[in-house]
Design a protein around this nucleic acid. Structure first.
Lengths: 334, 334
DNA sequence: GTCCAAAATTGAAACGATTCAATAATGTTG
DNA sequence: CAACATTATTGAATCGTTTCAATTTTGGAC
């Protein structure tokens, strides 16, 4: 650390440390004093020590971001949004991964609290289990992203999963499909629930009888979906179209269908979830529901900052961002 | 913050604060005292305040990670490795992105220093320009990852780019290709230089005359490579194979070749760089040089920790990890 | 049981900011 | 210009640790 302190600045500027502190924190100053302090800071190359500052004021200008997996495409885009929004405000981001484990999530939440972050953005591992309880005396703001948690009253930024799924299934129906399989996610995750709801609602609205065999569940983790797709295509009366409800399961659906040498967009139709540019480079390109990941990150960051700055208007706020459907020839017209 | 301090612990355990501090920092203690302190800590739910600790000891148990782009596949895997290694040591990670800009890189480096991180892992934007100069009085360890910087003596963890590229080009040659184009990266980035070197060396070793028209340059950023591939395939005597030297240029090469309806592995052969599982799901799967991104992250983290702990053995250390070649039918045998 | 070196403990002084009550300077008004 | 309200400034106390010189305790050796 450069050893220049507020005291040195005060000495050189011929004012008291209190005044220098007031300058730093943007309070009103006599013009002459401001000038002198500015000059002294410049001359000494003074840098504020965030540890000393934080110790006294318990503000660290740092937030925590906790996600299930750093290498996940969707998570990455979210983080990019958060970083963009936070960097401009001179806030730093402490990042950690819960590795899809509730235990690790709890541990890392505690770790972030122990580090005295000013707020946390978290994508929960599960919407049912949320073992973590913040110590009651230290209530820093928390914003959920992507997934809600039952009985937890916190701000959240999610995407419109019901309608996202609805639009996908509707598209499948409009292409003439009646036998539509879904790789549904674990029902302890709110997004998975909502996407299944969207599926059901679309079938209902179009008077299509729900066939339970067409609903299979898969974990939302890296290897999820392999078994599920196998089950679907192995049915005696298999679906003509498959709707896969998150990124890893979509990747794995593709993998399985290809291994089975089923021609996508012909023998079997596929619609997935979450965009990666490579999906559009397949033959045929893959239909997907696209979530505004980056914007979700930005929105979560903005909301968190509002709370950090003490503005608790409308708490708890649930912001739902619209999804977009990319319809391609991976879905056959029948 | 929970308001329990070391003082409260000392009081309850009937020892001095100094002793409690010694306990926390793992010094030898009389067994009885250790017990009493442990009990008091447990009872009061004492958590150490990292700000106070950092203020006195100027250690924050936090490192900075600065990369060109958070959403880049390779970077993400690197970060995952770093997180894994650091989490187990109870270190936190402050993450930021330079967005491929030297200016931002400098700003964020300064930002990290100002935050008093204990060390920094950085993937530099350029190997030539490194405008940043750490203040001389605050020499915290820095580890470069993936890319070296000229005239900067720091530890580094990179992959064996020369041999990585060599193996790819050699494979192309062994498949009968003589007209091999390369999408070389910007020569101010060490990896790009080295990969071009590998290309040249392979051609040389196999007595193939280098055709300057076959060497085109593209930025290593998100949209890099589009123009370059167009140039190559537009030549009157175009190459039969293209070697693309990083992830984005590989993605874009794919994109352009597909748009031009050139059948990969038949009309044109392609070998790319950096793995993403989707590459292996194309028809044909795409040949790539795979870097051990995650291991590079782990290794960088380990090296940094060594330096943070004062072990400067072998400084500056340059660790080169081996790459792996995935050879597929995206390269035609001719 | 003495003596001495080694090990453990103590407690006050940092670390470098913010905060706040007391004080000083400035502005405003009749 | 006196009287008062307002605005700025001061500087000591504080935040919760670590550090270190001084002191006490411990455990062998004789």
């Amino acid at each position: 650390m450069s050893n220049v302190t507020i005291k040195d600045v005060a000495l050189l500027a011929e004012v008291s440390v209190g005044t220098v502190s007031r300058y730093i924190n943007g309070y009103q100053l006599k013009a002459g004093n401001r000038k002198k302090i500015e000059k002294a800071i410049e001359e000494l190359d003074f840098k504020i020590n965030p540890l000393a500052r934080g110790l006294r004021s318990s503000k660290t200008f740092t937030i925590g971001v906790l996600i299930p997996r750093i290498s996940d495409v969707f998570c990455t885009q979210v983080i990019e949004g958060i970083e963009e929004a936070m960097a401009s405000l001179n806030y730093s981001i402490l990042i950690c991964s819960s590795n899809d484990s509730v235990q690790q999530q709890t541990d890392k939440m505690n770790g972030l609290m122990d580090k005295c972050v000013d707020g946390i953005i978290v994508m929960p591992v599960s919407s049912n289990e949320w073992s973590w309880r913040g110590s009651s005396d230290n209530r820093i703001p928390i914003v959920l992203i992507d997934r809600l948690v039952r009985e937890c009253e916190w701000d959240a930024v999610v995407s419109d999963n019901v309608n996202g799924a609805y639009s996908a299934v509707e598209m499948l129906i409009n292409h003439g499909h009646r036998k539509i399989g879904i790789i549904a996610g674990p029902q302890n995750i709110s997004t998975a629930q909502e996407r299944l709801t969207g599926y059901m609602r679309a079938l209902n609205d179009y008077n299509i009888v729900v066939n339970d065999d067409y609903i299979v569940y898969a974990p939302y983790t890296k290897n999820g979906g392999i078994e599920a797709v196998n089950r679907l295509v192995g049915l005696t009366d298999p679906p003509t179209a498959i709707f896969s409800t998150n990124h890893p399961t979509t990747v794995n659906s593709l993998k399985v269908l290809m291994e089975k040498e089923l021609v996508i967009g012909n023998q079997i139709s596929l619609c997935g979830y979450d965009q990666t540019e490579l999906f559009q480079m397949f033959t045929p390109p893959i239909s997907v529901v696209v979530q505004p990941a980056r914007d979700m990150g930005i929105s979560a960051a903005t909301t968190l900052m509002k709370r950090i700055n003490g503005d608790y208007e409308g708490f708890p706020l649930i912001k739902r961002l619209k999804t977009q459907l990319i319809a391609t020839s991976s879905v056959k017209k029948i």
